[in-house]
């Protein structure tokens, strides 16, 4: 098994005729993801170079293909509408790669999708990959390897860095999930931990957190109270100055909370080893398994 995506994933790419959407649709097809269609309003009827049919809207796309998952590569100002449309069409999992969505858009998206039973990953997410089965996102597929370690992260490239070290040390992954760097996201660290807790093929979880918010502290509390998987962590932003947004909209220390120090301490209190450099994660996980 794995979480969120596997061989049964039937994917629609929203924004498939755009530069990023087109490129990554091909990459996902090459990886073996079952890309059943794409949507771009006004471009319905055409096919991509890989032979993926393009539809004008999500309802039609879902009716024609039986899709259960979508991935969003549209510009930020149209992204909330793309999520609403996917959810309305009955999509179960929406992965929003688009970044730069206003927080207020997400405040109206989340209750809407919850009512319709849709899970949203992101926005500002690098996507999800269950190595060897399916990839929905923008991460380079070849650095991953099938295995039993779950990875959840608020970052993109930092996750690649850490996954790369896992893979070269022979540690494979069940699923790697980038939850996104925004302050308000569809699936947070705690939601992801729940998903991994219930996955029999995941034996250990790598949590990659960063400054801002208090989800890492809450995660530490859950681990302390008895989490069924082994956990290793990395926290980015030890050297980040307070009050400054560090690239991600959600990566900011405000009013003295959300610091790396607090998060590291919370993990230490819960008995979770926190790596000081990305490369150290592999060693910590090897020790746990």
């Amino acid at each position: 098994m794995s979480i969120l995506i596997d061989k049964n994933t039937r994917l629609i790419v929203q924004g498939i005729t755009g530069r990023d959407g087109g490129f990554h649709a091909s990459q996902m097809v090459a990886y073996g993801t079952n890309v059943v269609g794409g949507v771009t309003p006004g471009k319905g009827g055409m096919k991509t170079e890989d032979g993926v049919p393009v539809f004008d809207n999500m309802e039609e796309a879902v009716n024609e293909t039986g899709a259960n998952t979508s991935v969003i590569y549209v510009p930020a100002r149209f992204a909330a509408d793309a999520i609403f449309e996917a959810s309305d069409a009955g999509i179960e999992l929406v992965v929003c790669i688009a970044e730069g969505l206003p927080v207020r858009d997400m405040l109206s998206v989340l209750p809407y999708v919850r009512e319709r039973g849709t899970r949203v990953i992101g926005p500002n997410s690098p996507g999800v990959i269950s190595p060897g089965r399916s990839k929905v996102g923008i991460m380079p597929g070849d650095i991953h390897k099938e295995g039993n370690v779950g990875v959840v992260s608020r970052s993109g490239t930092l996750t690649y860095e850490i996954v790369y070290h896992l893979t070269v040390n022979g540690i494979g992954q069940s699923t790697c999930l980038g939850i996104g760097g925004d302050p308000v996201i569809g699936t947070n660290l705690l939601d992801a931990m729940d998903l991994f807790a219930n996955d029999p093929e995941t034996d250990a979880v790598v949590l990659i957190g960063e400054i801002g918010g208090n989800d890492e502290e809450k995660a530490a509390r859950i681990i302390k109270d008895g989490y069924p998987k082994k956990v290793a962590a990395f926290i980015a932003g030890r050297t980040a100055p307070p009050g400054k947004r560090m690239g991600h909209a959600g990566a900011i220390v405000t009013g003295g909370t959300g610091t790396a120090e607090e998060k590291i301490k919370a993990f230490a209190d819960a008995g979770v080893e926190v790596a000081e450099t990305p490369a150290q994660i592999a060693g910590i996980i090897s020790g746990l398994l």
């Binding site: 990659i208 980015a236 560090m246 991600h248």
Partner: peptide, 17 residues
């Protein structure tokens, strides 16, 4: 000069480390 906010923070942290 780094690509990605998380990796950029991790790079700063490693310089300090």
């Amino acid at each position: 000069i780094v690509n990605g906010a998380g990796l950029a923070m991790a790079t700063m942290d490693m310089i300090k480390y």
